[in-house]
Design a binder for these strands. Structure first.
Lengths: 206, 206
DNA sequence: ATAAGATGTGAGCAATCGCTCATATTGGCT
DNA sequence: AGCCAATATGAGCGATTGCTCACATCTTAT
């Protein structure tokens, strides 16, 4: 039951009890992330997550209705920065600059927590994400279409398919780099740029 | 009691009993494949596989020491054709022809059973078969390095990394196409070729 | 025919899973 | 202080899992 004194939703004025709840949620999410990174899906159990978070299993189920909901919340937490970075790329700065910034956002996101990024990427396809919660890939895909449309690209062929290919190329390269433990973000960005612009028949920016 | 067991393998001289054993192994592998395709990892249990194969759970464990071993055998069965196709690409036919044939082999493999291919691709990274260089990706990677070396590519940069990028680009595009249910193999081949040759700074073959 | 080995069977065990709920504790209010 | 709501707890339930093993059935050799 929610409190009668506070309407549903976030309130900037946090009582100690509310603060405790926020901390519990944060601890659970971070524990889930660490377990996935260290043990993969095999070690990812609700009991293990609760124990790692230092809270009881009952507390976990007070904030997440089920195991999948916890996964969804973790995906949303991890992709929030990526989506924000991509959303604030200004329009009208040209193909090179726009694609370059999208590549940078993707590489940065991946290199922050490489193992976790790959696992969540995989889960995103399996989960029954509601129509409300749009998949990250779909949002980026639409931005790519807009970027291509502004330049009249591709010269021939389907623009929707081209945008899917650009996204697939980027995800493939970034995930593989993360798996190998690459740490040179700048070099990876240059190679992804070469692949994307090469696919589009353009010269990559210097 | 069971006595000397014959590991799952083909014997040219097949007695009725041996023939039965071969059929059981084949039925189990195919059942595992179908369950993965229809229900994903969630439905992939040894009891479910045995039931779908029309054999008892005991028979399954007579030929596979554990659940992971069954997965490994399935990966080997599914990738055998791909590896054979790639291995028989002749040397000295030029970059365009060699890369083109590798792309064709990959696309054909993926389009045969798209869902299964993606799942097994994912499992290959998790399974403890990484110890040896038995991973499909590693074998293809070495062939890519040889192909690049014969052409003195890339002009600048690390050849090993370039080969990894080519493989990552191909896998990313092919897997994404399979997920979307693409059926036009020829079109997909052309787009992958454009990406790979674009990355290498070459014009894709007509 | 008979024995011996090869192969098949499936009830069921030990372990683990996601999750519930009765209870305990905490913190804010008067 | 006393009260109530919010939050935390963890034993344990029902379901499911990977897998074992005592036994049945089939094949081959003599």
């Amino acid at each position: 039951m929610t409190s009668r004194r506070q309407p549903a939703g976030l309130n900037p004025r946090k009582s100690p009890a509310q603060s405790r709840a926020v901390e519990t949620v944060a601890a659970v999410l971070e524990a889930a992330a660490r377990i996935l990174e260290e043990r993969g899906f095999a070690g990812y159990t609700t009991n293990a997550v609760a124990e790692r978070a230092g809270v009881s299993i009952g507390s976990l189920y007070q904030y997440f209705p089920g195991k999948d909901a916890l996964m969804v919340a973790l995906i949303e937490r991890e992709t929030a920065t990526l989506l924000a970075d991509i959303a604030k790329i200004p329009p009208g700065i040209g193909l090179e600059a726009r694609l370059g910034q999208m590549i940078r956002a993707g590489v940065t996101h991946q290199m922050r927590r490489p193992v976790l990024a790959v696992l969540l990427d995989f889960e995103e396809r399996r989960l029954p994400l509601g129509a409300r919660d749009e998949r990250v890939a779909d949002q980026i895909h639409r931005m790519l279409i807009d970027t291509l449309a502004a330049e009249g690209l591709p010269a021939t062929g389907d623009r929707t398919v081209a945008a899917q290919d650009l996204l697939a190329i980027t995800r493939g390269m970034i995930d593989a780099a993360g798996e190998r433990g690459e740490i040179d973000a700048h070099d990876l960005e240059r190679r992804v740029a070469r692949a994307l612009f090469g696919y589009l028949g353009r010269e990559p920016p210097a």
